[in-house]
Structure formats: C-alpha cells, structure tokens
C-alpha cells in the first residue's frame, strides 16, 4: 500500500519548485507520489517576512502578503477583504499574495463567516490596518531622507519624494518601518478616492482552484495519518445501546473500533455546539475505502431515547432545552395545530 518512488518524485518536485522560484505551480502534486501538504512544507517559506501588523507582511525584496482573517467558504473573502487592506496600503495589487490567517481572533479582530457580516465587520479595521502600515512605511522613508512625511506620496508599493526624486520600495523600507510606533490615528480615504475598492477583481485563489491544489480539509494529508469515520444512530430519537466490532476489526487496514462520547455529561452547550447523537462509534483505519468497508461490519444495537433536558447557553441566558423522545415524521409536523 505504500506509494512507490516517493523520494525520486520528491526530488523532481523540488527541482520544479526551484525552476519556478517557489511560486504557484500548476499540477504540482502530479509530479509526485507525495503528500500534498508535505509538499507545502518542502516549499518552506524561507523569505524574510517583516510583519507590519496582524494583516501585513513584506519581504526586503518587496513581496507583499496580506492575510485574510475570515474563513473562506466561497464568498470570495480571500479577495475582497485583502482588497480593503490594500486600498489603504497601496501595494501593487496584481503582485500582492493573499494568505488565509490561522485561528487567532485577537490578532485578526474578527473571524466570522456567517450572517453576511464579513464586509461590515472588516470595513474599518482592515482599511485601518492598511493605512497604518502605509504611514509607517512613509515615516521610515521620511526618516531616511530627512524630509517631512507630508511631502511624500505612494504608488504601487513605492514611496516617492517629488522634491528630491528619491524613491524606495516597501520592501526596502519594511525593516525600518516595523520598528516605528504604530500611528494612533489615521485618516481613511473616502469612497470617491478609492482606486481598488469598487473595481472588479478576480479571485486571488482562482489558479489553485482550477488546478486542483490541496486547499480543502478533505485534501489534507500528512505521513502516518489515519482515516476515521463515525457511526451514528439510524434515526433521530435513538441512541447507542451496544455494539460488536469483532468482524470489523478483522478487516484489512483497520486500526480500531471504539465508542466515544462527544460532549461530557452536563456540558452546557453554546449556540453553535448543536449535536444530537452524543455517543458515536469510531472506525479508524489506514485508508478511506478500508474504513468504508469495515464500518458495514460493525453490528450495533440501538434503543429509543427518553425525553431529556439539555442545558444550553443561548440568547443571553442559560436554559434547558427539551429533547423529546419519539420517532418523528414529516407528516406529523405538518399536521401540528398552531
């Protein structure tokens, strides 16, 4: 079951990487029998990123990276939110790289995909992040050249001084700028002054999507990773009574079959902790198909639930949510009398 030629393909992969300067490539996983996310690790980012704030990193050789704070599920926040930052930062948008931020809500202020709130919640903080970084870069240039900052202008990631003809890229200024204090107040552009916001811009992740890159959780793989599936009761209103995994455990590639409880007894659920079936059977093995086959061999016995009350923290207070017993049907719901 081991993939062959792993080392050889890893070498060929690295060769291709160096040819294209580590940038986005098409069909990278194709060169390899290698695990895509391992591949990502091999294209380790050796650049000297200078962080100007939570949203912006710049290298001395003038690469600009903007972090998107909000989880992306298809509304294209990977493009529109970095656009907000860059409107004020004024780096060269065509060359700006965007990266999904990890979970770090204090750094990103808000990481909330839901309620159609992405644009509204990001509107002030992201433009402010762009503007403060730009001011710091301009201040670094002003210090270097001994001129007042209000004589400077910026365009496409370059700070310029008209009087002296001096110019420096953001990359050249980033290291000095990062050491400066963060400006307390910045003026933001008014809509009439926007040059990027309000203009149609293509998806920054488009190439990765159409070439089938490893982008999704389903695609994520690391060496030694196991595949797991869970078996839940066959109906709402049922729960696990007992199970026999002896046949499943004999199936090829299967590592373990066990019962587990998702939430502890008495755990007070918050608004997004919804989970009906709290006791599940996990089937764990080496590969997806082996687990799919083995789970069919698990013999489980189920029993009806009793009406229960579960503690929930929602809409501003703790209450008990009633989970009624019974096997419900659509017909009964629509027969209900208001």
């Amino acid at each position: 079951m081991k993939s062959e030629n792993k080392n050889q393909s890893r070498r060929s992969f690295l060769k291709v990487t160096s040819l294209t300067g580590g940038g986005m490539m098409i069909g990278i996983s194709w060169f390899a029998n290698l695990i895509p996310n391992e591949a990502m690790a091999h294209v380790a980012d050796n650049n000297n990123w200078v962080q100007l704030n939570g949203f912006i990193k710049i290298t001395p050789d003038n690469q600009v990276k903007i972090f998107n704070p909000n989880p992306e599920f298809g509304t294209n926040v990977m493009t529109s939110l970095p656009m907000m930052v860059n409107e004020e930062l004024e780096a060269d948008w065509s060359k700006v790289k965007v990266e999904m931020g990890d979970y770090d809500t204090p750094r990103f202020k808000s990481q909330f995909t839901g309620g159609s709130r992405a644009m509204a919640m990001a509107w002030m903080p992201l433009r402010t992040a762009g503007a403060t970084a730009r001011l710091m870069l301009m201040q670094a240039a002003a210090n270097e050249w001994g001129v007042p900052v209000n004589e400077l202008s910026v365009s496409k990631g370059t700070v310029m001084h008209k009087g002296s003809g001096k110019a420096a890229t953001y990359g050249e200024l980033a290291t000095a700028a990062a050491k400066l204090p963060k400006p307390e107040k910045v003026a933001l552009k008014k809509p009439g002054e926007f040059t990027l916001l309000g203009t149609p811009q293509k998806n920054k992740v488009g190439k990765e999507i159409v070439s089938g890159q490893s982008l999704f959780t389903m695609d994520y793989q690391v060496e030694g990773m196991l595949i797991a599936m869970v078996i839940h009761p066959p109906a709402f209103g049922m729960q696990l009574k007992s199970f026999d995994a002896s046949e499943a455990l004999k199936m090829p590639g299967i590592k373990d079959v066990f019962e587990f409880q998702v939430y502890k007894d008495g755990y007070v659920k918050a608004g997004f902790d919804t989970r009906t079936f709290n006791r599940l059977i996990a089937v764990v093995g080496n590969s997806t198909w082996e687990v799919i086959n083995a789970r069919k061999k698990v013999v489980a016995e189920w029993e009806p639930i009793q009406t229960t009350k579960e503690p929930v923290m929602a809409r501003g207070g703790r209450r008990d949510e009633v989970i009624p017993a019974g096997l419900e049907s659509t017909d009964e719901h629509f027969a209900a009398d208001a």
Partner: peptide
C-alpha cells in the same frame, strides 16, 4: 486521493 495523493479529484 489516498494512495497517489492526487487530491484534485
């Protein structure tokens, strides 16, 4: 997907 790591499919 699992054995050849071609996850575009």
């Amino acid at each position: 997907r699992d054995h050849l790591h071609l996850v575009g499919t």
